[in-house]
Design a protein around this nucleic acid. Structure first.
Length: 602
DNA sequence: CAAAGGATGACATCAGTA
DNA sequence: TACTGATGTCATCCTTTG
């Protein structure tokens, strides 16, 4: 084998870790201001995109029998550009009211009754009171909804809305504190739901369905929860789907986040695109620098939401096939500079044959792959390779088109390589290590299945290192890193290969095998301090503040939160960002803000 | 009991076509 | 514009094996 398996893991002596002079990040410290307006699409006048609906539109729905306040609330939630989605939502709300009557009383759920106030505009009990012309809403009062809007401050209004939806005032306040008073109601609901899901899920080990039902039990039982969920789905479908693709009035698209073609991020070595400069909002600038990663092809709306939480920084989508021999489509959100990046040297092999020249011998001419697909956590079962071998050996050379098509499909699907005559086989763990930029045998020592899983969940080191390379000149004395969802340490290996000394790494990783892999690598290659924590949920503000005081802050917060519920491969629980595992993104967000806050108070 | 093997679609995107 | 087929996806669940 002509490849250099050990490059990058033996060069730590070339760097002067002990030079004096603490480098400071180029950007000024940003004071976390919880009252500052957060990222939002809801303008100060309360309407989505700042566009008030025509009075006639509201009157039209009122004429159809919907209470005016229900119409106002619905338009404020999803806008009025998509009539079908709006009607769906109104019908759902109306169904909720009907359902509520059918259920009879709230106490059947055994939970707290909803808090209903005098100025409640989400009163399910009265909404379906079609024939009650003497109700609270006067349909002839054109200025009613405008008065209603003026009467309440934005914050009070949102707290009331959230309380109407069954959340406590504390939860509502907390969500507004975290997301900002300007945050869209749906963002606030997502924030609370996520914390409920993660809290309850982990403390009680309930299924997602149970948790969702529990979250909504307080205002009407499971049927209501189901209706709310259906409403959300419909809103998502119509709001962001085929019919909802038109941009909003300000030119942005609320839900969809189109992936760039080619997927090369802001820049890549060898790609001479237009020089890209970006101006980050003050809240987004460091210290600390942060780096967040997840799958590019997440369900619709996920990246838009992640972006909203991470200070409206646009993701950098990169397919690692432009850097190495395997595809890996990922989105990265970070506040690092994007100029003067430099790739790891030596450059990784860029094609299958460059990586594995010996496979050329058995590679059929009709399999024209030059790159492998995304390296995943599971390998092809033996039955797949057996079927391929059987089909090929029972046909001529070249095999008929139908056989070729079948074999090509299976090879692409399972990332098979040709290791013998008619013999396609899955990659070995050490080959995955090589393609992903890890030192050979990095994951050796744990079970083979575990190695595949850990590697499939990892960073592509060269890609991440290219983005992190800008840190090299900034921290000649080394960096202090908070590493969340560390896995097998892709970020750490990238920093090491860049020659950036890690003075401290506080690593949070739930998997025992992964912690063992990182610890083993650390002991072999590093001299800094490694602190290992098992669960991000256990990392609370006080402990974060303690580390910030102890180490004088962090220079980099890095991590990719679980993709289990976002990845297309997941047949069972592709539940989006609120899924059992992927909702841990909110812990990344929480911890990052906690670090920023603690560092601002230093 | 732990580890490994094998079967199990949904969904978004995109290119091609009518 | 709408439809169709092809492509690809940091996985989960149940059974079997050791």
């Amino acid at each position: 084998m002509s490849q250099d398996w050990t490059s990058g893991s033996d060069d730590s002596d070339k760097f002067d870790w002990d030079s004096d002079g603490e480098a400071e990040p180029s950007s000024a410290p940003a004071t976390r201001n919880f009252d500052a307006p957060g990222p939002s699409t809801l303008s100060s006048n309360g309407w989505i995109n700042g566009e008030a609906p025509p009075t006639s539109l509201i009157e039209g729905y009122v004429a159809m029998g919907f209470p005016k306040e229900m119409v106002v609330r619905s338009i404020k939630e999803i806008g009025h550009s998509d009539a079908e989605a709006l009607l769906e939502l109104l019908l759902t709300y109306k169904a909720l009211g009907d359902d509520d009557d059918a259920v009879g009383n709230h106490s059947t759920s055994g939970c707290n009754p909803p808090i209903v106030e005098g100025n409640d505009d989400l009163d399910f009990e009265n909404w379906n009171d079609d024939d009650d012309t003497g109700g609270r809403v006067s349909s002839s009062d054109d200025s009613g909804y405008e008065e209603f809007l003026r009467e309440m401050s934005d914050k009070d209004e949102k707290i009331n809305s959230l309380r109407d939806m069954g959340f406590s005032e504390d939860e509502a306040n907390m969500a507004i504190t975290i997301c900002g008073v300007d945050a869209d109601l749906s963002v606030l609901v997502d924030s609370i739901s996520a914390s409920q899901v993660t809290e309850v899920c982990h403390s009680r080990n309930l299924s997602d369905h149970q948790v969702t039902a529990r979250c909504f039990d307080s205002f009407g039982g499971r049927k209501r929860a189901r209706l709310i969920e259906e409403s959300k789905k419909k809103r998502k479908r119509y709001g962001g789907g085929a019919q909802g693709k038109r941009p909003s009035s300000d030119g942005s698209d609320e839900e969809s986040m189109p992936l760039p073609k080619p997927m090369v991020g802001f820049n890549l070595p060898g790609y001479r695109g237009p020089s890209m400069t970006r101006v980050l909002p003050e809240l987004a600038t460091g210290p600390p620098y942060f780096y967040y990663e997840n799958v590019a092809r997440a369900p619709k709306g996920v990246w838009a939401k992640i972006t909203r939480f991470l200070f409206d920084i646009q993701p950098e989508f990169v397919d690692s096939l432009h850097l190495c021999a395997a595809a890996r489509k990922r989105g990265y959100i970070h506040n690092l500079p994007t100029e003067n990046r430099s790739p790891l040297l030596p450059l990784p092999p860029k094609t299958i044959f460059e990586a594995f020249p010996h496979y050329k011998k058995w590679w059929p001419s009709w399999d024209q792959r030059t790159h492998l697909n995304c390296l995943q956590t599971c390998m092809a079962p033996a039955t797949v390779t057996e079927r391929i071998q059987q089909k090929l050996s029972s046909s001529g050379n070249p095999p008929p088109q139908s056989v070729q098509k079948y074999v090509r499909h299976e090879c692409s699907k399972w990332n098979l390589v040709w290791v013998g005559k008619d013999k396609a086989a899955p990659l070995e763990p050490h080959e995955m290590e090589y393609l992903l930029g890890f030192p050979k045998d990095h994951t050796r020592g744990v079970g083979k299945t575990q190695r595949y899983k850990s590697l499939g969940n990892s960073f592509q080191v060269d890609t991440v290192a290219y983005h992190l390379s800008v840190l090299r000149g900034m921290f000649p004395n080394g960096v202090r890193v908070l590493s969340l969802f560390t896995g097998i340490g892709g970020g750490e290996v990238a920093l090491h290969k860049l020659g950036i000394h890690m003075r401290v790494v506080v690593s949070v990783e739930i998997g025992e095998a992964n912690r063992q892999i990182l610890r083993s690598w650390w002991d072999q290659t590093q001299t800094g301090t490694l602190i290992e924590i098992a669960d991000v949920k256990s990392l609370k503000d006080d402990e974060i503040a303690t580390y910030v005081r102890r180490f004088g802050g962090f220079d980099l917060v890095i991590g990719g939160s679980p993709c289990n519920n976002l990845a297309g491969s997941n047949r069972h629980h592709r539940d989006g960002l609120e899924g059992e595992h992927s909702s841990l993104f909110y812990d990344y967000f929480r911890i990052l803000n906690s670090v920023k806050s603690a560092m601002a108070n230093m």
